[in-house]
Design a protein around this nucleic acid. Structure first.
Lengths: 342, 342
DNA sequence: TTGTACGCGTTATCAC
DNA sequence: GTGATAACGCGTACAA
């Protein structure tokens, strides 16, 4: 292995001067610098970043803890995080939680801290009480932590999507296209996001003076399979439903299939709106109207925020950033009645 | 920050003894060990893994380089890698290539090596000539590298799925269900996997004495959108096609939509088989017959193999491991005619 | 069984 | 502008 010493010897200087040349923190004369660069080139020297981290107390590692990476949401967020990490010169340490609800936070976090990470991005979906580990006292001893997709809480830095507003977009669009009995297939209600979307559905209907009773709601588990079952359940509860807002696109896939099996024509017999705008949603039959969240952007912002907290620890104060989702209109909902066009 | 010195002082011993207690490489008397553990507990000491890596010349980092993490295949493989990494005590360093075909391999790899990774898993799909950087001379200077999803090559350690065999499963199933004019919608042919699946299609038809001419093939780009276009193209080339083997499930989604738009009933008018067994495939309309690859398992094996190469560098020799895919029969193909049942 | 001294590769400090 | 020296936190010969 080639070290600074070898380079220094080859260039006829001291190791310190080599370091100064590389970091640029102290001036080095043009000609010695040229000699050093030449020696580096000839020897193929690369600085050992581990050693550098040790003395600098800055590893340029950021840990990402997430789960269900084969789902659309988490993978999209991770992509955004990685893109920004590359931009800012960080390497990503990836940890996956197998069961987000009973994660062994303690061992995961302490291991990452022992690795010397500069910051942590916690992108595990909020399920049940799985963020209770992060007490104020514990966080004080940790590097900066940015939370993604979590309920707002004072003192926490959180990057979020406005799930209620997304639900409102979906429900209001259904109302605009003439629907009057609007059901909801929710995600599991121990998930914060599922509760938010349910609340958004409920509030929008209340504002419009439409029904929002419990028999208009069925509960799924995010999977296509559960969407299928929930659709059957919902229609048996209330046969007069003319449209459904679904908690995510996966469940919408299952619901579409179930609707086909029942011989429904969509959107004529039943209008459907999903949530997430997964790539496939555009190619379902019929193409799915859905809510787009800028998850890639959320990932980028999360890493940028972690960087800010690392780089300027004194100025940085806990903050919350919320992204607004947007409506993507496709063929699983009807033409707008009130004034606009589809 | 608490270090060995603090612990040593608190326990009234020398730093070396603390280290011996932790690593267990030298015997320590029971009572001093008890004192040391107590001091560790009280101080909340955690060994600095960066410093340990520096002196041990073993970081327990493994780098994973992949791309398109929001696609099913790569994310599934990554999950498997991570699971096994956790099992064996490695931390994962994640790098994503934005454009796999013209990746800047040099800078990515050298950065990871400078980070002191013990091994590298290259899980970027083989596109064009994007592995040409890995010459024998370059690899000799690098930590062990395991390649995933690549064309076999002597001297390379590669974990693979048998794409040809998968294609054969698909085509033979179509033949068994009475299809005689079997088209293929391929992935982009600069991808090795796309070529393999095409070859498997061609060989299986040849063996069965059926047509496999070029007008039975249309080329897609893996996306649902391209599957839609390819289906129209294929049917305009050959109106007598009774079934299609598709290079992946995404394209099958698009093709299904296109078939619906043309008023086809599936599988009666057209039978379809996909490739990948993405979670949604079961909930398409109709549920999609497809080929399952054990990508999670492939990920696990890749990391295990990297570990073997790291741990036993002398015994380890380059090897290739190929997983056999399996057929998942659903409703997008008909009932088996020859002898079996669906 | 335990303490001492040094090395891992780098940067920071202090002289010159 | 440059060179010696110490230090980051840990492991490990070597000596005791």
């Amino acid at each position: 292995m080639i070290t600074v010493k070898h380079v220094a010897q080859a260039a006829g200087v001291s190791p310190g001067t080599v370091s100064n040349t590389l970091t640029g923190k102290r001036p080095v004369s043009a000609k010695t610098r040229a000699r050093i660069f030449q020696a580096i080139e000839e020897l193929g020297y690369k600085p050992n970043l581990l050693a550098r981290s040790l003395v600098n107390r800055r590893s340029h590692f950021i840990a990402v803890i997430t789960s269900e990476i084969d789902q659309f949401g988490p993978s999209r967020i991770l992509s955004g995080i990685e893109a920004q990490a590359e931009e800012l010169g960080y390497s990503l340490l990836l940890s996956l939680m197998r069961d987000p609800s009973q994660a062994d936070v303690e061992s995961t976090i302490t291991n990452l801290v022992a690795r010397g990470v500069d910051g942590i991005i916690w992108a595990v979906h909020q399920v049940g009480n799985n963020r209770r580990w992060f007490t104020r006292e514990r966080r004080k001893k940790l590097p900066p932590i940015v939370f993604v997709t979590m309920e707002p809480k004072p003192g926490f830095t959180i990057i979020n999507s406005n799930n209620r507003a997304g639900a409102a977009l979906a429900v209001n669009h259904l109302i605009d296209t003439g629907c009057r009995v609007i059901g909801h297939i929710s995600g599991p209600l121990d998930w914060w996001e599922a509760r938010e979307r349910l609340t958004g559905w409920r509030q929008s209907l209340a504002q419009a003076g439409l029904e929002n009773t419990d028999d208009l709601v069925a509960r799924g588990s995010w999977s296509a399979e559960s969407g299928e079952a929930a659709l059957h359940q919902l229609l048996s509860q209330r046969s007069d439903i003319d449209s459904i807002f679904l908690g995510n696109d996966q469940m919408a896939i299952g619901a579409l299939q179930a609707a086909h099996r029942r011989g429904y024509t969509i959107p004529h017999d039943l209008a459907l709106v999903g949530f997430d705008n997964i790539p496939e949603s555009r190619y379902l039959w019929p193409p799915l109207t859905t809510i787009h969240q800028g998850l890639f952007e959320i990932g980028k912002v999360a890493l940028q925020t972690a960087h800010d907290a690392i780089e300027y620890p004194d100025e940085f104060i806990a903050k919350q950033i919320t992204h607004q989702p947007e409506l993507i209109v496709r063929e699983s909902t009807g033409v707008v009645h009130s004034s606009g066009q589809a």
